[in-house]
Write a protein that binds this DNA or RNA. Structure first.
Lengths: 340, 340
DNA sequence: CTGTTAGCGCATTCAA
DNA sequence: TTGAATGCGCTAACAG
């Protein structure tokens, strides 16, 4: 069966060659009109563009990418889009990369039965020009695979010594210590912890708990919550603390949504915030300042992380920056609001 | 320069042919081990798998997709990942499609200077096996482009007569009427509206306002908010209503985040909810039942939408279902909580 | 169960 | 400024 018969039924049927035939030029001229228009005379361009519109041509980037080894695709791995904390980072990253001509697609990860290695392989099989990790990669195999390739990788919302490639964010260990210290500075000597037990969260928790103990603060209880984070779980965990009958004067929450749930549990029991129990969270999600009481929380420069990640990507992709040379620690800051 | 020299520096350098050479078989045998293992003897499979591990081969789906016309890729268009309402839908859809061997990637849309048509073209250029739209497509060109192709398309969170292909969700017009009627049923005769002015929101708003007026209810004020939706904007809008000195007894909000902001504005002014002002929202976001007061809202079966969308996709992709034959209206229901 | 041949749609390289 | 030849890495179709 020759091309053309049955053509409405096929998959990606209209090709660059069809455009070339319609416009009366060679295929490579069409390619140039799309990728490098300056090299084609204005009149020819118009002919070609008319032909493209006429037959409804849409480029096939599988074919283009195959031969050029460039996909103009950036894949961002996120644990789940329910994680509000990454929204601004991703928004900004996407805008910057779009402007530079890259398509950004998000891949939700690690909530199913695929291993990290398999997930990274699946991502790599699309041959993206770059990969952004918002979530830490613990599998040795998966890290080795990424190290063995040239695909630029930016890890965001993290900062540590030996990144796969580029990294921009903050140290979770430093943050854990700072959360503990903020409670101590407010004068609390009996503190509870409510923590979502994901990988980075555990880092913060360990650092936080250790710092409290080192400073002689009593840790009355550690409530661990399985991801995904939710307000309801925060509420339940706070209820536990209340029911334990050894209510601390301060509670550190691993996440603002947890804090929100904790506030609602305390309200329901008629316990005053912050006079009877003070709360400190993390993330400064968009409405943290707008609920009542407004949430005291540690804020990171989510938007800046996205912007800088995009700069790092472009440096690696287009400015010849070497692997492993781009690292930035942006830190964090305490927003002292009504719950503390 | 022959392949192999400098091989660590190349892009997707290890090929299926390399695996074949290492394992001492033909390329097609390697391909079969990966795509159709039953057709290969167990012993050969092991040889091949060992070779794959040895040289760190990762398949190139650009090449595979190019020849097979199958990408095993589903692209989901979302307005922004900040839209919490789609989370459950996408989560479920992703799980189902992953289990069926498809990769689901999300594309954030329409917050930049690209037209709908260009965005759809960019998506199609990756040759996904299917496309999911969580956001309505108004551009005639963009719709025509999708109609002209065979790529299955499922529109979710919507229901109307003439979908591009498959559709599962609910009617925004019906919902607008139902929101109005819920206020009327509670006995309110003076109602304010706070609405995020996106495309579907406008449909709901028009239907809602018309129904109120038809029933002789006074619409004291319509506050329109530009997307993206945020709690802060909801608070501001409610503050306007308060300052206008013609405070209604009921306020219908286009979104639960708006309701949350409205509650906080009312609290700040010492106005009791719901006795002085009642609030009804839409979306039933995850914490709607867990904040205080809990939010009265219209709920849609977000999870079911995802599950059914996946079924529709698989029916179109693998079960020969015809374009335009899959349509489902799941409706919505009122969750009468503490703000009304 | 395994291999051979051919070509998917496009951009690179060189030539005109 | 435009074109011809070539091959990217892989799988469909057929043969053995």
């Amino acid at each position: 069966m020759s091309r053309g018969e049955n053509s409405e039924m096929a998959w990606g049927n209209v090709t660059l060659a069809d455009v070339a035939r319609t416009a009366g030029v060679s295929p490579i001229t069409v390619s140039r009109v799309l990728n490098d228009p300056d090299k084609v005379k204005a009149k020819t361009q118009e002919k070609v563009k008319a032909a493209i519109r006429e037959i409804g041509y849409v480029p096939n980037m599988l074919a283009g990418g195959l031969v050029s080894s460039k996909s103009k695709l950036v894949i961002v791995l996120v644990p789940s889009i329910a994680h509000r904390v990454f929204v601004n980072t991703i928004q900004n990253l996407t805008e910057q990369m779009s402007s530079a001509g890259y398509q950004v697609l998000l891949s939700q990860t690690f909530f199913e039965n695929q291993s990290e290695l398999e997930q990274i392989e699946t991502i790599l099989s699309r041959r993206p020009d770059a990969i952004v990790l918002t979530t830490p990669l613990f599998s040795v195999d998966a890290r080795a695979l990424l190290r063995a390739r040239n695909t630029p990788v930016v890890e965001v919302w993290d900062y540590y010594d030996d990144p796969i490639d580029a990294v921009v964010g903050f140290s979770h260990t430093e943050l854990g210590v700072a959360m503990a210290q903020a409670m101590i500075d407010k004068g609390h000597r009996r503190v509870g912890l409510i923590w979502v037990d994901d990988q980075r969260g555990s880092l913060r928790l360990a650092a936080c708990e250790q710092h409290l103990l080192e400073r002689g603060v009593e840790v009355t209880s550690v409530q661990r919550i399985n991801p995904p984070v939710s307000v309801g779980e925060g509420r339940k965990a706070m209820q536990y603390l209340i029911d334990e009958d050894n209510i601390p004067t301060g509670v550190i929450c691993s996440n603002d949504l947890i804090t929100l749930g904790a506030v609602s549990a305390l309200k329901a029991s008629g316990i005053a915030v912050p006079s009877r129990v003070a709360l400190i969270g993390f993330g400064d999600i968009d409405f943290a300042a707008h609920v009542s009481p407004s949430l005291s929380t540690f804020q990171v420069q989510s938007t800046d992380i996205g912007k800088i990640a995009a700069q790092m990507l472009l440096a690696r992709l287009e400015k010849g920056a070497q692997r492993g040379t781009l690292k930035q620690n942006l830190g964090f800051q305490f927003e002292d609001r009504e719950t503390s």
